[in-house]
Computed example of a mutant assay.
Amino acid sequence: MTVNIYDDINRLDSSFRKTAEFIALEKAVIEMKDDEESLALFKSFRDLQLTLQEKQQQGEEISGEELEHAQKTAQLAQSNAKIESLFVAESNLSGIVEEVNRVLMKPIKSLYEAF
């Protein structure tokens, strides 16, 4: 008997999108996008994060000035109610993702526990 794991993954995708946590994140994203100021701040915050991550991955040093700018941008983002709601919803959804990952990794972990 052949198992098609992709059918199961597609069912999981469908179930995941129906969770209260995903729906809350979806709502938070829509509300943030509907506010031009929040959207611009979020884009700035996200772009800055990506830029700094790329620098780290390439082994480049992040200057004190860049770090200070990142901290100020993060503080501004966190003080914005719509962005903060998005962060909270994202964090709540992250718990489900971590649990799914834990369950998926369980068989692999059990293989190595035999050593």
Rank of each mutant, 00 (worst) to 15 (best):
T73E: 09
V103I: 14
E36A: 14
G64F: 08
V103R: 09
K27Q: 15
Q75P: 00
I9W: 04
R102L: 10
E98H: 11
A114R: 15
V100M: 02
L67M: 12
F115S: 08
E90Q: 11
S15E: 14
E26H: 10
Y112V: 15
L12K: 05
K106E: 14
S44T: 09
S79W: 01
S91F: 08
I5Y: 11
F87I: 09
G64I: 06
D35R: 07
E21F: 01
H69W: 04
S91H: 11
L41T: 04
G59N: 04
N10K: 08
E60C: 01
A70W: 00
A77N: 05
Q78D: 03
S85N: 14
Q49I: 09
A89L: 07
A40Y: 05
T73Q: 15
V29D: 06
Q57A: 14
D13F: 05
L76T: 00
I30S: 07
F87S: 11
E36R: 13
L86I: 09
V97I: 12
I30F: 03
A81R: 09
K43H: 09
V97T: 10
S91N: 13
N92P: 03
A40Q: 12
N101A: 04
S38M: 11
R11V: 12
I5R: 00
E54Q: 14
I83G: 04
F22R: 02
E60W: 01
S79Y: 05
K109F: 02
L76Y: 01
Q53S: 10
L25K: 11
E21Q: 11
R17V: 09
L48M: 12
E60H: 04
A77S: 13
E99T: 06
R11S: 13
F42P: 04
P107I: 10
R11D: 15
A28E: 05
L52M: 07
M32E: 07
N10R: 06
G95P: 00
I9L: 13
D47N: 12
L67D: 09
K55V: 06
D34A: 15
E36M: 07
L93E: 03
S14Q: 09
V29M: 14
N101F: 01
Q71L: 13
S94K: 07
A24D: 15
F87L: 14
F115D: 08
K109C: 00
Q49E: 11
M32C: 08
V88G: 02
T19P: 03
N10M: 10
E99H: 06
I9M: 13
D47H: 02
A20W: 01
S94N: 14
E66I: 02
Q75M: 14
Q58R: 12
F87M: 15
Q58A: 13
A24V: 08
L52I: 08
L39Q: 09
D7G: 05
Y112S: 09
I9H: 01
E31C: 00
T19C: 08
S63T: 15
S63E: 11
